[in-house]
Design a binder for these strands. Sequence first.
RNA 1: GGAGAGGUGCCUGAGCGGUUGAAAGGGGCGGUCUCGAAAACCGUUGACCACGUUCGUGGUCCCAGGGUUCGAAUCCCUGCCUCUCCGCCA
Length: 425
Amino acid sequence: MLDIKFIRENVDLVKRGVANKNTDIDIDRLISLDAKRRALLAEVETIKSYRNDVSKKIGLLKKEKKPCDDIFEEMKNVGDKIKVLDDEVRNITMEIDNLLVWIPNIPHESAPVGKDSTENTFVREWGQKRQFDFEPKAHYDIGEALGILDFERATKLSGSGFILFKGMGALLERALINFMIDIHTARHGYLEVSPPFMVKSACMFGTGQLPKMEPDMYKLPEDDLFLIPTAEVPVTNIHRGEILEESELPKRFVAYTPCYRREAGSYGKETRGMVRVHQFDKVELVKLVKEGDAYPELEKLLVDAETILQILKLPYRIIELCSGDMSFAAAKCYDIEAWAPGQNGYLEVSSCSTFEDFQARRMGLRYREAESRKVKFVHTMNGSGLALPRVVVAILENYQQADGTVVIPEALRPYMGNKERIDLR
RNA sequence: GGAGAGGUGCCUGAGCGGUUGAAAGGGGCGGUCUCGAAAACCGUUGACCACGUUCGUGGUCCCAGGGUUCGAAUCCCUGCCUCUCCGCCA
């Protein structure tokens, strides 16, 4: 959420930012509602001040047992007037809030302006694409042949868009989770947390999934809970509504969770295999930092995430998203895309974004500055570190052999019984 | 699922319907003392909003939303949440 004061004082900047995010919000209407609200507020507060004065006097008169019926008569009218004005303020505030919650975060000045993914910019790349002396297969063919992926039976269980890992496939998934968390805790200094996989709507609002993304979420209406679409939601919300001490910052969390996404409207795209599924595992990095640290910390977070691919020796590139391709809450966002030879393309395995104080304002997440003792909003950010199925795809496709087996990346071998390859049985 | 208890400031915990933003203690911050620290003592310590250019003035907030009243943290209703016991259960 943007600060109404900021909007008031930067109307043009906000209009431009909103437009660059491909969003259409009537900012002028918001501004005029805001002005109206403040005028009403001034009016009703003057009357309330008067009421408070009189109430105090009544208290004193009562003590002296003096009659005050005539005052009551007058004050009844004052009370009614206040009620009417309060109602007006409440209604107009609701109207303002209904606009405000739909306004996206505005892109950082350093973020490229563009309408969609075709205008994202290349940042850097790493690694050498392997030269194959045979035609590289797609992960679903490799995995099914090895008996480690079973799409047909996954569909029997839950419909399309689900994965059944078996044997070394299941172990590979589990190994990756442990491997990634170990790197981030031991080497990068993140605190491991294991949060609930279901959250209240307040959490979903806090990180900005609600209201806009509601159709993409799995909801449990009986219990007013949502299945999390990413660990970002529970983890960023850990300190919702709190005022932290500056000395507690930055906080760095790493969490493994499954992620549930309806992927509404994306049917037909990437239906084959496990590039786009309704449930997937992910190791997520979340940072809470103080104002001013957001951008350097985002760069570090990006490096922490890409380290995983480097250790796994998987070639990748980094893309910076343009304004129109960024998510609702993001101010700046990098994607890490792993090379997948079987797809002859890149797969997004991580998205690293900073939200500045956008999420924090929604969830009331603040900190007290050590020196000034002032209360400020925390700056939040997160990035996948990394999303699992697509890393599995990249491993299967990059490490496949002519005989159909798959060599296990060295770094994962300790997590997989020191085996060197996944073979036919 | 059955039966109770309760939701007050950073925390614990008081609070007859009328100077209560809220006692007390703890914590935090500042100071005295000390070579330094601890202890002790003194002082201080909420957030948000509006208005007026520092500083101020006013308003709101005692889980949330309604209601009663001239006036509500204090009374009434609804909802939410937490805790305890029993049952069930990984």
